[in-house]
Design a binder for these strands. Sequence first.
DNA 1: GTCTATACGGAGATAGAC
DNA 2: GTCTATCTCCGTATAGAC
Lengths: 223, 223
Amino acid sequence: MEAETAHATDEYGIPVIPCPSDAARRKRQLIIDAAAAEFLAEGYSAASMDAITSRSGVSKATVYKHFGNKERLFLAVIGGILPGSCAGPEPRGAALADAPDLRAALIGLTRDWAALLLRPDVMALRRLVIGEVDRFPQLGRLWYRLTYDVNNGPLVEAVTELGRRGKLDAPDPGLAVQQLVAATVGVPQLVHTFAPATEVDEAELTRVVTSGVDLFLARYAAS
Amino acid sequence: MEAETAHATDEYGIPVIPCPSDAARRKRQLIIDAAAAEFLAEGYSAASMDAITSRSGVSKATVYKHFGNKERLFLAVIGGILPGSCAGPEPRGAALADAPDLRAALIGLTRDWAALLLRPDVMALRRLVIGEVDRFPQLGRLWYRLTYDVNNGPLVEAVTELGRRGKLDAPDPGLAVQQLVAATVGVPQLVHTFAPATEVDEAELTRVVTSGVDLFLARYAAS
DNA sequence: GTCTATACGGAGATAGAC
DNA sequence: GTCTATCTCCGTATAGAC
């Protein structure tokens, strides 16, 4: 910081004039990172703008210049990291219909998805959104949209396509996918929702996900 | 209140001397009701002791005499109403093994259970516990214990017994029950977790629960 | 046990120099 | 755009009379 006010120079003595908007963007990112950490650790109401200021290293006035108030900062930060934290099995979901071994493909897909959703930071974000959904219904709708349109959507398409090809027999593909997700990812997720400190046991996770996929196939595999 | 300080009398002029500890208990209950409403509406941090005082009608000092501080009040109130809000299908879960029509019994049981868990006040309580589980891990453990020991427990017993009688074939009854719950109750619960305003459609609920039970039986009914 | 009145700190947000 | 210093209010919790 002092370097800037003292006309910083590079190693050859040439003054370095940072693009002002660039410096602003860097500070903005510092604020976002600090705010995300504070909100995730404390929740919305208990998080303090003073603490965010301290964590970020910038002054409080700068925070307010950038984001206006606490609500807007919260929505910008949480809304910004939600998409990355829900990023599920879209790419592989679309390719599911062409997988040679459907069972193995489903197991791999749900297992990887569960591993992402069970990450402590993702679980903390999920708990935060759930706890604040009355105050910020937008975030609930966003989570719902990201989960169902982005993640479940391709799976529903794949199940429908597999039905056309005679490999699955699911009269209601949308409900079938909800059940598949609930019976695989949903089971360990529920445990970690109420017991955050629980560690993820990879072997146990594979066992649960495998059993869930078998449950799904026992009902919906074409006879 | 004035009646007490003015030596209240009944309709015959006989002075009414309320048992002091009884008056205290009544006030205590007023505080508990007011605190529950405030905490459920605002969350822990945003709830104010001033608001709880106003809602209850007693003075702030009385609240602190009874409960010490905000944390203790929160734990007492939420911990006190949790058991009533998780009260699931225990009585019928135990009788499940003797039901003449297993499928119908499972559908009725999960449908009624879902109807309870989807009640707006129960959902709000659930969101509150989830959102505060980092600050109050006791509540998470209590919820987990109430759900698994009280509700899932009898179901696991019933599934085990049905296995002995050759009606079900579930190698891991605990996991099977988790899957049953996830595929029935869990599906609409997930929707209402992120979209509190959604109304419960009875017909849709029956459809989802029925499909979940059929999913369960397709895998675990003895052949 | 219950009240009124108050102490004390920290919250969100802003003014004004640079 | 960024900082320092400050404003104002509301938070939890308590003191002391009754």
